[in-house]
């Protein structure tokens, strides 16, 4: 019984969202606003039960580990953003997070985005494919060079770089099409099979 009601609700909401393809309308607005409310509530509960409870409240209040006062204080500082006169205190936890990740990325991206990519490009120029790889990477780097206007020979090389980029974007585009169509097929299957039982 519950499942049948659930499937009906899911199917009607699915149709409400699809109606957006025609134009904005009250059904879509209803589904959209319900979506916002329910999902915001879901994530708030999810983080309370899966993060705050086991990673803060239990170690701090049940296990008595005082170190956890620090994240608690940082969290409360974050909430102080709601108090206009002292909202600037929320900058401290933000600085903590931003600084931490800036340091983390500074190092990891040098390794993954620079050193590893350069290593992967160092292949002997013995086949047409390896030449294409070499030319593609170097002309791409030329395109992203900001200190010189894209004119003359330099502009020509940069143009070549852009062509490579466009081929790559086209490849990504084409690669994604089937995956996206399969998502639609999934929803159609739900409507026609699980809801209407038209197909088996």
């Amino acid at each position: 019984m519950f499942e049948t009601i659930g499937i009906w609700i899911a199917a009607l909401l699915t149709l409400c969202i699809f109606s957006f393809l025609y134009k904005d309308n009250p059904f879509y607005k209803f589904a959209e606003h319900l979506f916002i409310g329910v999902s915001a509530g879901y994530w708030a509960c999810y983080y309370y039960h899966n993060v705050l409870q086991p990673n803060l409240f239990v170690p701090l209040f049940q296990e008595g580990r005082p170190i956890f006062i620090i994240p608690l204080v940082l969290g409360i500082m974050m909430l102080l953003h709601l108090v206009p006169k002292i909202s600037w205190i929320s900058r401290w936890p933000l600085a903590f997070i931003v600084g931490t990740y800036a340091g983390y990325y500074l190092i990891t991206y040098l390794q993954t985005n620079a050193l590893e990519q350069v290593t992967a490009t160092l292949v002997p120029l013995v086949t047409f494919s390896s030449v294409v790889l070499f030319v593609g990477v170097t002309t791409g780097l030329v395109y992203f060079f900001f200190s010189k206007e894209h004119k003359g020979t330099f502009g020509g090389i940069a143009k070549f770089g852009i062509w490579f980029l466009m081929i790559a974007f086209g490849a990504s585009f084409g690669y994604t099409v089937m995956a996206r169509i399969s998502l639609l097929i999934g929803r159609m299957t739900f409507l026609l099979k699980d809801w209407l039982h038209i197909i088996q």
């Binding site: 500074l106 991206y109 985005n113 620079a114 494919s129 490579f164 980029l165 081929i167 790559a168 990504s172």
Partner: peptide
């Protein structure tokens, strides 16, 4: 072939540039 060669080459160019941009931004933030 397109996926493993021109596509890979272009993406590598982007990734290197993005990496440098990220590192530079991170450094400026620190």
């Amino acid at each position: 072939w397109i996926l493993t060669n021109p596509n890979m080459a272009a993406k590598r160019g982007i990734v290197i540039g993005v990496g440098l941009g990220m590192i530079s931004t991170a450094l400026k933030i620190i």
